[in-house]
Design a binder for these strands. Structure first.
Length: 259
DNA sequence: ATGGTCGGTCTCCGA
């Protein structure tokens, strides 16, 4: 089974790029972030034509997440527990059926800039809520994957120019510590495990020729529960998409799991 | 060293 995460930065602008990539990469399940669309406006038909079930959690203009799956889904959930007043569309969760049940949690973690400030407070509180949800899922000993745009650079080796990020919410010690608390519950960073060492990036800013200079960061992550980590065969980053026409500023990250 | 780019639209904000 192949699972992927892709921050598409707007479904309307990225539909052709997305369908071309889906046809080529043929993932079984994909979590999308920043669809920037309400559910009613999401272009389901061209994705269904490629064999995918489509579940969205959208909102107007910003954020928005989705799951595309070639396999049946159950137990759909569209919010991260812990704050009923949070109306930002950043979490979608489901169980993939058709074999051994696999819980998929697709997430778009808050950016948090500028820091300090209310947006950074929201990021840290959101991460505390995610930690609580991960605890629950792990306690159930389910096969589970938490994948998406984490907006956290885990370590200095995950940035081409770590010094440029020193005061950024993506790299501040509090953000990195909060991510470590989640990972240390018992998750495996699949890309770290299969593509060790520096120089693996998933995001290059549109500005200042970041792509041409390979000034990237690794912020899109696939974290595996212990049961799924045992099944990890391969992980990859589809870097070439960043060099195509009208690219997203993120590229897909994927894993292949044993059946 | 600095400035610079996208997407969706709220012709500005978020990233």
């Amino acid at each position: 089974m192949k699972l992927a995460t892709f921050n598409i930065n707007g479904i309307k602008a990225r539909l052709d790029a997305l369908t071309a990539w889906l046809a080529e990469a043929a993932p079984d399940v994909v979590c999308l972030q920043e669809i920037k669309s309400v559910d009613e406006a999401f272009p389901r038909a061209p994705l269904e034509a490629l064999g995918y079930r489509v579940e969205t959690h959208g909102q107007k203009s910003f954020n928005g997440v989705a799951i595309l799956s070639k396999l049946p889904l159950s137990d759909l959930r569209r919010s991260l527990p812990g704050d009923d007043t949070d109306d930002q569309a950043r979490w979608i969760e489901a169980v993939v059926e058709g074999g051994r049940p696999l819980r998929i949690c697709g997430l778009y973690l808050p950016n948090g800039n500028p820091a300090p400030g209310p947006k950074f407070d929201y990021k840290l509180s959101w991460m505390a809520r995610m930690e609580a949800r991960v605890r629950e899922v792990l306690a159930a000993e389910e096969h589970a994957v938490f994948l998406g745009d984490y907006n956290v650079i885990p370590q200095a080796e995950d940035a081409a120019r770590p010094e440029a990020w020193a005061t950024d919410a993506l790299f501040l010690p509090e953000s990195r510590a909060a991510l470590r608390r989640i990972v240390n519950l018992g998750l495996t960073d699949a890309v770290r495990a299969r593509m060790p060492g520096p120089g693996v990036y998933t995001f290059w800013d549109y500005q200042a020729g970041a792509w041409e200079r390979n000034n990237g960061i690794r912020i899109d992550h696939v974290l595996l529960s212990p049961q799924v980590a045992d099944r990890l065969e391969e992980a990859g980053v589809d870097k070439a998409l960043r060099g195509t026409e009208k690219p997203s500023d993120h590229v897909p990250v994927w894993v292949r799991l044993a059946a």
